[in-house]
Amino acid sequence: MSTPNIVLTRIDNRLVHGQVGVVWTSSIGANLLLVANNDAAKSELQQELMAATAETSGVGIRFWTLEKTISTISKASPRQKIFLIIKTPLDALVLVKGGVPIKELNVGNMHHSENKVQLTKKVYADQTDQDAFKELTALGVDVYIQDVPEDKKIPIKDVI
Rank of each mutant, 00 (worst) to 15 (best):
L66W: 03
A76V: 06
S71K: 11
A76K: 10
R62V: 12
I70Y: 01
S74H: 14
D91L: 03
I73Q: 08
I86D: 13
K97N: 15
K87S: 04
W64C: 01
P78L: 04
K81I: 02
T72D: 15
K97P: 05
G98Q: 02
P78F: 02
E67G: 12
K75Y: 15
V96G: 05
K87F: 00
V96E: 02
G98I: 03
L93I: 14
T69I: 10
R79L: 15
P78E: 01
I82C: 05
K81V: 03
E67Y: 08
I86P: 15
L95C: 08
A76S: 15
I73E: 04
A92Y: 10
T88C: 01
L84T: 11
I85W: 10
T88R: 06
I85G: 06
K75N: 15
K81H: 13
T88V: 05
T65E: 07
R62F: 13
I82R: 07
T65C: 15
D91W: 02
K68A: 11
I73H: 12
A76H: 09
L66H: 06
K68H: 13
L95N: 05
Q80P: 01
L84K: 05
S71D: 07
A76P: 04
E67R: 13
S74A: 11
T72G: 12
K87E: 00
I85E: 09
G98K: 06
V94A: 13
P78Q: 04
K87M: 00
T88I: 01
T72V: 09
S77D: 13
G98T: 06
A76Y: 06
S71F: 02
P89T: 01
I82E: 00
P78M: 01
T88Y: 01
